[in-house]
């Protein structure tokens, strides 16, 4: 198997308007690598949702995207407040985002469900007061 390609991004927790830069960069990189549009769409939407979550809830974090044989792996790590009830957080429509976030069009409670919808595997490791790591896999 060829060496895996790894992309590493820092997600700025302060700047809401620049949120999405890492996802847009991933989209560009995958396009240059010749991935089909639907795979690119799935990876970049899942990653964007994760990025937005890290900005809204965790004050930023890091994203690592690895292109492996047969799949693209996305690992999002933050040191935010953690998720108290993961099952609840996975319900469509459940959100703890503040009103100012909602006025921007986010906080609909669709972020984590979308990440699951667009990926083949998703695992959430979270501890309250410690942080959250989300690992997603998109097969191609």
């Amino acid at each position: 198997m060829a060496d895996a390609l790894i992309f590493h991004y820092e997600v700025d927790g302060e700047n809401f308007t620049s949120a999405g830069q890492a996802s847009v960069q991933v989209k560009k990189n995958l396009r240059q690598l010749g991935f089909d549009p639907e795979t690119i769409r799935r990876v970049s939407i899942a990653m964007y949702e994760g990025e937005i979550n890290m900005v809204i809830h965790a004050g930023g974090g890091v994203a690592d995207v690895t292109v492996e044989d047969g799949c693209i792996r996305i690992v999002l790590t933050d040191h935010g407040p953690g998720i108290a009830d993961i099952d609840k957080a996975m319900e469509e429509g459940f959100s703890t985002a503040r009103d100012n976030i909602r006025s921007l069009g986010f906080g609909a409670g669709m972020g984590l469900p979308n990440m699951k919808r667009y990926t083949d595997e998703m695992q959430i490791d979270s501890a309250v007061g410690v942080g959250t790591t989300i690992t997603m896999k998109v097969n191609y």
Partner: peptide, 23 residues
């Protein structure tokens, strides 16, 4: 609702909205 749009809109759709922020 932007996440809703990302979850449901299809590629090549015309997306009608009243949101206008950079996101």
């Amino acid at each position: 609702l932007l996440s809703w749009v990302m979850g449901r809109a299809q590629a090549d759709d015309a997306w009608i909205t009243i949101m206008s922020n950079v996101n």
